[in-house]
Computed example of a mutant assay.
Amino acid sequence: MSLSRFFTYGVWLGALLMSLVTYAGEPEQQLRAAAINGDAPRVAALLNAGAQLESRDDNGRTALMLATRHNRVDAAQVLIAAGADVNAKDDIHDSPYLYAGASGYNDILELTLDHGADLASINRYGGTALIPAAERGHVETVTMLITAGVDVNHINRLHWTALMEAIVLGQGGPAHTRIVALLLKAGADPNIADADGMTPLQHARQRGYTEMVQLLQQAGGR
């Protein structure tokens, strides 16, 4: 066997062995592995063969939760079409809907919104999907969640709203400034203070975020 043919055979054998390792175990384990890998045809085949859709790993994560964590849109689509619960929370209170929103995984977020996402559900910090989306500067995600009807004035356990997080945890750049504008336009209260009594406007002034200050003042911030 020539060296090149031997190398090609080795690559093929390695891929075969990896496939066998990846999809070893019970059908539900294989389903979760296929979801992680984004192997939508394998996901569909396992479901058709009877794998339990809502089975969980040691961290309480369903196949859909795992597909979401890895932003595997095709696999998520197959799972959701089969009836996967978009609100099923894992051991740290993440759900596919909440995680997609927080991470800016908009394709999966849209799927969850179209299939029963609980807009009032909260994460381990007591926040809706909108709050971490605002904090992380996901402008399109924030727009989607506002349009869907998420409460823009929800207060988490730190006593922060989405507006507060966009200011305090953002960098004052274009994305976070745009998010502040979107939230205010959607009815965010500019005078909901944090646990220490500081308002969004006071935080923006303290940080020198001039554009945010102007937006807050125009919205009646004090």
Rank of each mutant, 00 (worst) to 15 (best):
Tyr9Lys: 13
Val11Leu: 14
Leu20Ala: 14
Tyr23Val: 12
Ala24Leu: 06
Gln30Cys: 12
Leu31Met: 09
Ala35Met: 10
Ala40Cys: 10
Val43Asn: 04
Leu47Met: 14
Leu53Ala: 09
Glu54Val: 02
Ser55Thr: 12
Ser55Leu: 06
Leu66Cys: 00
Asp74Asn: 12
Ala76Met: 11
Gln77Ala: 13
Ala81Phe: 01
Ala82Cys: 02
Ala82Pro: 01
Val86Asn: 06
Asp90Cys: 01
Asp90Glu: 13
Ile92Gly: 08
Ser95Met: 10
Ser103Cys: 08
Asp107Lys: 12
Asp107Leu: 11
Leu109Thr: 01
Leu111Cys: 02
Asp114Asn: 14
Ala117His: 01
Asp118Arg: 00
Ser121Gln: 14
Ser121Glu: 15
Ile122Ser: 11
Gly126Lys: 12
Leu130Asp: 12
Ala133Lys: 05
Gly137Gln: 03
Gly137Ser: 03
Ile155His: 11
Asn156Ile: 10
Asn156Arg: 11
Arg157Leu: 12
Trp160Phe: 11
Ala162Arg: 03
Ala166Asn: 09
Leu169Gly: 02
Gly173Cys: 08
Gly173Asn: 13
Ala175Arg: 04
Thr177Pro: 00
Ile179Asn: 06
Leu184Trp: 08
Gly187Arg: 13
Ala193His: 05
Thr199Glu: 04
Leu201Trp: 05
Gln206Thr: 05
Gly208Ser: 10
Ala219Tyr: 02
Gly221Trp: 01
